[in-house]
Amino acid sequence: MDLEPLARAAEGEGVLFTRSKELLMRTQNLIERQLVEAPFVSTFVKRLVDKSMGEILKVGQAASIWPLHLGIACCAIEMAAMGASRFDAERLGILFWSSPRQCDVLFINGTVSRKFAPRLRMLYDQMPEPKWALAVGNCAISGGPFFEGYNTVLGADQILPVDVYVPGCPPRPEAMLFGLIKLQEKILMQRADFLGTGIRQELAREAGAH
């Protein structure tokens, strides 16, 4: 297998590869290309690589959730308490990161106003796949105490898909951690995928041919 382009890319963009996500994506693309182009590798081996590597990948994703360091309202204070030493979210691999380009999880911790909604959607769109969203607090779930405000979006799920809802006004840091643990369970339950759509299409084509 030719790993030279990967090493060159990692060397050239050193800082960007602090996160394993891009490295992982490049590895996936590389292995997929090698597998598609390899003439003598059987379908069984391709499936084996896909499923076994996918299981490993899921565990890795669940153990390194990186939420976007975004504070909207008072729930952000509780989020800070969750990340600090008493509750210590980092022991679960939850590390707050300040750029959406390297993040997995969008913490929506506050009232989403009509003016902020397009900005929040833009942050969500800037995050690479796979990505999840947490609606933390009653404001992000349904508008909360500002339900009758003229400027309140009635829940963050009006503008982007939300995976876990953590109720409370604000929720305790334990509750936020519980929501993140639930998200880890959700990640571990999803389908084991490692390779991209190209190898999947080829497998489907071969399955149809036989």
Binding site: R114, A117, E148, Y150, V153, L154, Q158
Partner: peptide, 11 residues
């Protein structure tokens, strides 16, 4: 006399 959630608001 502002009408709450008047027509044209999408949420």
């Amino acid at each position: 006399d502002y009408e709450f959630r008047q027509a044209g608001e999408w949420w």
